[in-house]
């Protein structure tokens, strides 16, 4: 029993956190159907209405979190849940670098997921994220609009945007900022496309989307922005963290 108690404590501390739900700074995404780039064999996916954070989680937000839940401090975090680059440019456990209202990055999926749970929220699913992010200022689905795509491609090619404060990109149709133009964002099922269980992929083990093979099974060959997003997600593992990867939380709509 003695042996188990630290393990149990760990499991407990990871499983539970005091829930302080707050719906402010969230926007309602009314949901609907959309055709994702991958994973649905040209079938549309239905997205239920959900709430999404208007802004990504900032350095200040995250500092507050690690103060409350010290097991997620840089020096305490379990290697199983975060690799060495976790909060890599924080000077110490409680000192971040960069702007207080810049998005927090170098956070693993485990940490991001826990953060959201402790706010009484959760990470958005990939479909939710993609659904919300296909909007531009005026339209729900701007994926065919040239300027929308070019904006995203330009951002992918702009170095060091992770240093920018939140809220400086455009406000989209749903009232949400920074889905494009600031940092990549974790989703709950970020690698589900690549472990789809789809027979062809499992046989070929051709899951890295390299070269021409990425074109097979994609619903829109012109959506370069989305290709790159899926490629990025595919390169990540849950314990990885990355300079250009942050997150925001989502929540079910309570009836």
């Amino acid at each position: 029993m003695k042996l188990y108690s630290p393990v149990l404590f760990l499991v407990f501390s990871l499983l539970f956190c005091e829930v302080a739900a707050q719906n402010d700074k969230m926007a309602l995404v009314k949901g609907g159907v959309y055709l994702p780039l991958y994973g649905a064999e040209n079938k549309t996916v239905k997205v239920e209405p959900f709430l999404m954070d208007i802004y990504p989680v900032t350095n200040t937000d995250y500092l507050k979190f690690v103060e409350e839940y010290p097991q997620w401090k840089k020096s305490n975090v379990k290697p199983l849940f975060a690799d060495k680059s976790y909060l890599t440019n924080w000077k110490d456990d409680e000192t971040f670098q960069g702007l207080p209202n810049a998005p927090v990055t170098n956070v693993s999926w485990f940490a991001a997921k826990k953060y959201c749970e402790c706010q009484g929220k959760r990470l958005p699913t990939m479909d939710e994220w993609e659904f919300a992010a296909m909007a531009n200022e005026k339209m729900q689905d701007a994926r065919r609009i040239e300027t929308y795509n070019q904006y995203i491609l330009n951002w992918y090619e702009t170095p060091k945007t992770f240093n920018n404060p939140i809220g400086e990109t455009f406000k989209n149709y749903w009232g949400i900022y920074d889905l494009h133009g600031l940092v990549w964002e974790w989703t709950l099922d970020f690698n589900s496309v690549l472990i789809s269980g789809e027979s062809r992929k499992d046989v070929d083990k051709d899951s890295n989307l390299f070269c021409g093979s990425a074109a097979i099974g994609a619903s829109d060959l012109m959506n370069y922005a989305a290709f790159m997003r899926y490629a990025f997600r595919g390169s990540m593992k849950a314990r990885y963290s990355s300079q250009n990867l942050g997150f925001r939380c989502a929540k079910d709509v309570e009836n």
């Binding site: 390299f210 070269c211 990025f232 595919g234 250009n244």
Partner: peptide
């Protein structure tokens, strides 16, 4: 910002190495 990999045409193997070099 992006993940990358490398396909070397001098390699005999799937993807010329791209399959095993996809790096975040």
């Amino acid at each position: 910002k992006l993940p990358h990999n490398i396909d070397l045409h001098a390699v005999n193997g799937p993807g010329g190495g791209a399959e095993s070099s996809f790096v975040a």
